[in-house]
């Protein structure tokens, strides 16, 4: 779902210090600026809070109840009971494994492929505009459409993939082949986003660096690993972080292609099935909360990991 990259830290840093610097006795002007700031930003802020804050609190609250929509009177407080039920269930851990596997496989491939695409887009002098236009098509296409395109391509009855490979494999008959096709669709649709972010990072590297390395006799691989990659750490981190968080929430491709059959269910799908299909509101809410906590945890680990990495880089 992620479509662009926030730059919160930069914006916070970009605050002009001299205006707010006049601390003693807020000037009339500063007070007016405060009021205007909140008048302009307030509506958007409160809409965001209401549309997200309410559902989040609601999910946390219901996750503490044994509550089934078809039996509203049987609602009872169970504390952390739902969480214990979920975390001690082997099925949850299996789905966690599937989700993690999809995330790791797709992000690694997207990163390698995305880097290759970015390098080509950066270096090719001809066809530059056509390539960038073409690459935006997967980005803009509806995920459901991408899912159908890939599913049909691999369906034995009418797909072109099996005749091409000379097999009659039933791709949607087992866990691993199904996951392969799901990952292909996910990778195809989201690699362009990754590559455009990496391209932006590439464009930031001064050409002199590469020229100097070349003069000093660095091979193409050395220039890539010693000059290009270290100089675009920020872009790499942003691209990896956002794609990882997004991949962990995978839902559309799974829903369309297998609907969770053959052990392809992911955590988002589990939350959906518990709440909407089985109307187990309490249990489903708890799954949602766990999913949210996991996403936040990944984000924190990522930022921490990259920070130490950057610090080491500077220390060396």
């Amino acid at each position: 779902m992620s479509t662009t990259i926030p730059a919160a830290s930069a914006e916070v840093r970009a605050q002009v210090p001299d205006r707010s610097g006049k601390k003693p006795g807020i000037t009339d002007r500063a007070r007016k600026e405060r009021t205007l700031g909140w008048m302009l930003a307030g509506p958007a802020f409160f809409v965001m809070l209401l549309t997200t804050g309410y559902p989040v609190l609601n999910a946390i609250w219901y996750s503490l109840f044994d509550f089934r929509l078809t039996d509203p009177d049987g609602r009872s407080f169970v504390g952390l009971g739902n969480y214990i039920t979920i975390l001690t269930d082997g099925l949850f851990w299996r789905q966690f494994g599937v989700t993690a596997a999809i995330t790791i496989v797709t992000v690694v491939i997207e990163f390698v492929l995305g880097f290759a695409l970015a390098l080509v887009m950066h270096r090719a002098l001809f066809l530059r505009k056509s390539v960038r236009t073409a690459i935006l098509v997967p980005y803009g296409i509806i995920t459901v459409v991408s899912a159908y395109a890939w599913q049909y391509a691999f369906t034995p009855a009418y797909g072109f993939v099996n005749p091409l490979l000379g097999t009659d494999r039933d791709w949607f008959g087992g866990t691993v082949p199904s996951l392969v096709v799901i990952c292909l669709s996910e990778i195809w649709k989201t690699t362009p986003f990754m590559s455009l972010l990496l391209l932006a990072g590439l464009a930031q590297i001064p050409n002199d660096y590469l020229e100097a390395a070349k003069v000093d006799g660095a091979t193409a691989w050395q220039r890539f690993s010693k000059v290009i990659v270290p100089n675009m750490k920020a872009a790499i981190m942003v691209a990896l972080l956002f794609r990882t968080l997004d991949a962990f929430r995978i839902f559309d491709n799974v829903f369309i292609m297998t609907a969770g059959a053959n052990g392809t269910e992911t955590l988002s799908f589990l939350a959906y099935r518990q709440t909407i299909t089985r109307v187990m509101i309490g249990l489903g809410s708890a799954v949602s909360v766990i999913l949210a906590i996991l996403v936040v945890l990944i984000a924190v680990l990522f930022v921490k990991g990259f920070k130490t990495n950057l610090a080491q880089q500077k220390g060396a």
Binding site: S2, P55, V56, A59, Y62
Partner: peptide
């Protein structure tokens, strides 16, 4: 503009973008 709460607004917006949509959709249901 300079006003208190600016980073709060951006922080909330950032937090929302990483939040799983399914976790918002099911309570709204």
């Amino acid at each position: 503009l300079e006003f208190p709460g600016k980073s709060l607004i951006l922080g909330v917006a950032l937090a929302i973008t990483v939040f799983p949509i399914i976790a918002i959709a099911t309570p709204l249901f």
